[in-house]
């Protein structure tokens, strides 16, 4: 889009701000015990206030209530959504985005307030307005705009019973999308992501192959016996290219560490702590500290490592508190 085209497009979508999506509508079903029970059943919700009349009557609730999270359910359009959804103003707005290449749609946030518990027999009326459209944003999913709608809910007495703000992102999908792009294996199940493995070349393959067999090796110069890690083809002390290796006992001490909070990568288990560990043999290794809370790790902590399978495809040394 040229700057002029972008401005014309943004003016067009911003004109929707403040418009009602449709006239205030009464929900197709009033609050009722059957729909409450069906919902609680699927959700595995055993709250007796929703389904146990005897209990509910005696409790401070004074009778059955609907789960507050059902608020929006009372006004859903239902089966027509599958084949012939109503062409309301919100869909019209989405179409404008679609036509300009922002075809992706993703619900990003909801914010609900429930003013009172709803009970069987209550009517629920919904009135939705397009409230905000953001500036253009670069998001992880791609470039797009956030659209915020506000729905106010009222009852048979025209009293407010709740409010829901709903935010969606209309975006141009990135080509290089993240895990949610999803690999599609034969059974339709995405493959569980695994840790990012090291490529194996001439100078490091032997080391990773040993890890696959449960051992952590340290490269040793055959000429002057100096240990070195990570492996490299020549001894920096005597320039010999002859080497062998010893197996580490994996007794070590934390030299430094960090807890990784953000971003979280698929295939890794959080909380996740990485550390520089000084091994008893004198070299250092980078690994994870596991088997304790992140806040219990400290510099100088004694640790003991072992090689473990950490996911379907990955063997790695992992270090535990030594005691």
């Amino acid at each position: 889009m040229t700057p002029e085209e972008r401005k014309a497009f943004e003016d067009k979508v911003h004109a929707y701000v403040g418009r009602e999506v449709n006239a205030p509508q009464k929900g197709k079903d009033d609050v009722n015990k059957a729909m409450i029970r069906h919902w609680a059943e699927v959700m595995g919700d055993e709250n007796p206030a929703y389904t146990d009349e005897e209990y509910a009557a005696k409790s401070s609730k004074g009778g059955i209530i609907a789960p507050p999270s059902m608020l929006q359910i009372w006004s859903m359009e239902g089966y027509p959504m599958a084949h012939n959804p109503s062409q309301d103003v919100q869909r019209e707005l989405h179409n404008v985005f679609d036509e300009h290449g922002f075809a992706g749609v993703l619900g990003t946030n909801t914010s609900a307030e429930y003013y009172r518990d709803l009970r069987p027999g209550d009517e629920v009326h919904a009135h939705t307005v397009i409230d905000k459209i953001s500036e253009q944003k670069a998001t992880q999913r791609g470039i797009g705009y956030f659209i915020e709608t506000v729905t106010n809910f009222t009852d048979q007495n025209d009293e407010a019973v709740g409010k829901i703000i709903f935010r969606v992102l209309k975006f141009t999908p990135n080509d290089s999308n993240d895990a949610t792009g999803g690999d599609d294996s034969d059974d339709g199940m995405p493959e569980a992501p695994t840790r990012i493995a090291s490529p194996r070349g001439h100078d490091n393959k032997w080391w990773w192959d040993a890890v696959d067999e449960g051992k952590v090796l340290i490269q040793r110069c055959k000429s002057c016996q100096t240990l070195r890690h990570p492996p490299r083809p020549m001894c920096g002390e005597c320039q010999s290219i002859e080497w062998d290796s010893i197996e580490s006992t994996l007794d070590g001490e934390v030299f430094s560490f960090t807890e990784l909070h953000y971003p979280k990568f698929p295939g890794y288990q959080y909380p996740l702590v990485c550390a520089v560990i000084s091994l008893g043999e004198g070299t250092r290794i980078i690994s994870n500290i596991v088997g304790c809370e992140p806040e219990d790790v400290y510099i100088g902590m004694k640790v003991k490592g072992k090689v473990e399978q950490v996911d379907e495809k990955t063997m790695l040394p992992q270090f535990y508190p030594a005691d």
Binding site: W39, M43, G44, D45, E46, N47, P48, A49, Y55, S59, S60, K61, P67, P68, S69, M70, N109, T110, S111, A112, E113, Y114, D117
Partner: peptide
Amino acid sequence: NGFMGRFVTDWAGPESTVKGIDI
């Protein structure tokens, strides 16, 4: 949204009242 609510009422008990959920 329903699981957010259920998770908290499971802990709080049946006479609690959910006032709002942000996700």
